[in-house]
């Protein structure tokens, strides 16, 4: 049956409208979870707040379990879903740059826009820096492109590269998530509480 748009159950004209609605919901959840506060986001690094880790890990686990149950029941064809191509070196370098930016600024790109929406000045400054970063990257893209293209591994997943059943990967991933939650709670109990 699904995915609904590629299989013509919903017209592709609805693509952007649905994307906007999901965007609203995503923004609302981010803000409602308190992710528009840079103190909360930086808390993962300092060990006094693990909400970011818990929310994103939970959403990933719930989504993947739900999708595979739907695939099992033939409600959705998992092979039709888009898998983003993996650019190994670009991802490693970009991840490091983003990590530094995340820690220094206290936002990630999505949450910074959330912060702008509720009128936070640090969020606005961060977004401005984000735009400058995008501009610099675009201007130097030609010289960065070889690095970008060379490490392209295509649309790979763990299922393809490890040749393990996806169900086992999900099970192991869920256990990792639960252990991470337990560990983060343990760390939090050891670290001095910060009120903000």
């Amino acid at each position: 049956m699904g995915p609904l748009i590629p299989n013509g159950i919903i017209s592709s004209d609805w693509n952007y409208i649905i994307a906007i609605l999901i965007g609203f919901a995503f923004g609302y959840i981010l803000e409602a979870s308190g992710f528009s506060s840079s103190r909360k986001l930086a808390g993962v690094f300092y060990g006094y707040d693990f909400a970011v880790l818990k929310v994103f890990f939970t959403s990933a686990v719930v989504a993947v379990i739900g999708l595979y149950y739907m695939d099992y029941l033939n409600w959705i064809d998992i092979s039709q879903l888009y898998v983003h191509p993996t650019y190994v070196w670009a991802a490693i370098i970009g991840g490091m740059i983003m990590g530094v930016g995340f820690l220094a600024g206290g936002f990630c790109p999505g949450t910074s826009l959330c912060a702008v929406a509720i009128g936070k000045i640090d969020g606005m400054v961060f977004t401005l820096g984000l735009m400058i970063g995008i501009f610099i990257f675009s201007e130097f893209f030609n010289s960065l492109e070889p690095l970008f293209e060379r490490s392209n591994l295509g649309h790979i997943t763990l299922v393809d590269s490890l040749n393990i059943s996806p169900y086992w990967i999900i099970f192991i991933f869920t256990i990792i998530a639960l252990v991470a939650f337990y560990f983060s709670d343990w760390v939090r109990s050891k670290v001095k509480k910060v009120f903000y």
Partner: peptide, 15 residues
């Protein structure tokens, strides 16, 4: 909630 998540994930393996 953690137990529910674990049971659902294990269910996928056992189905």
């Amino acid at each position: 909630l953690a137990a529910i998540l674990f049971i659902l994930a294990a269910g996928l393996v056992l189905l």
